[in-house]
Design a binder for these strands. Structure first.
Lengths: 136, 136
DNA sequence: AAAGATTGACTTGTCAATCTTA
DNA sequence: TAAGATTGACAAGTCAATCTTT
């Protein structure tokens, strides 16, 4: 079971990543961060790390890469000078729209098509249970 | 759904990996390779790559690390001098036994306990379906 | 001292180029 | 030329040490 879980996740990630790079010139890792920044009001580096289950150091470096690519910027936090608020640039918004659409499309065929609606709901529920039980 | 899948797999992997390093001084990545070599008759680098869904280059480097750690050796392939057959050393066998037991124990509590038997069977079946549908 | 983030050294993977044998 | 593997440069994460601000 563990083996199927890990191997499926690996292959799924690599497949989607390869297609995004080919079609949109955006990696799946970058897209994930763009989505978090877009979905989180006043997003800080901490929130990126939490949402993606990576360390703060790793999140900081990822934001560096996005900033170098011109997709996001760090703006000074209004009431805490230790921190920054992350915002998408216009280019970042466009990249998110393009890559996000491709992402949804590919997931629908890779995750949705092979499963019945009932199976999909069951899988989602089980994963939610498991994920919650690990957060202790 | 994709998010829960990827995040759960990440957290599960990191949790098990941390426990194995603490208890057995063996990483989860190394253990995975030891298990493949042990389970595959006349195992070559190719088979390691295939079983773990990584590239041949990555598998070769992983085997390098195991060999440096004294856990496995490359022996000449009897009828094909391009290739090698991988074998566990005595130390590799011991490491596999120790870490494998800890691995099973932790997975039982992390994957088994939170789910009913029916849920577990359902999850295994779904993952098998999905993994098979991706191998095209 | 603790919170937020950054940085540098290291791990483990990818890909492309290369080497050897079939 | 193909198959099997190795190597070197790079990508993206970890951790520990550090810096600044609270």
């Amino acid at each position: 079971l563990f083996d199927d879980l890990v191997r499926f996740e690996t292959i799924l990630w690599n497949t989607v990543d390869a297609r995004l790079r080919a079609e949109c010139d955006t990696s799946l890792g970058s897209l994930n961060i763009l989505m978090v920044i877009d979905a989180t009001p006043d997003c800080r580096v901490q929130e990126v790390a939490g949402a993606l289950a990576i360390t703060v150091g790793g999140a900081s470096q990822s934001v560096d890469r996005l900033e170098r690519a011109g997709l996001c910027i760090r703006t000074p936090h209004p009431r805490n000078r230790r921190s920054s608020i992350l915002r998408l640039t216009v280019a970042g918004d466009k990249a998110l729209a393009r890559a996000g659409a491709a992402f949804d499309r590919h997931l629908a065929t890779l995750l949705g098509d092979p499963l019945s609606a009932a199976q999909r709901d069951q899988l989602a529920a089980t994963l939610k249970t498991l994920r919650a039980s690990l957060s202790d």
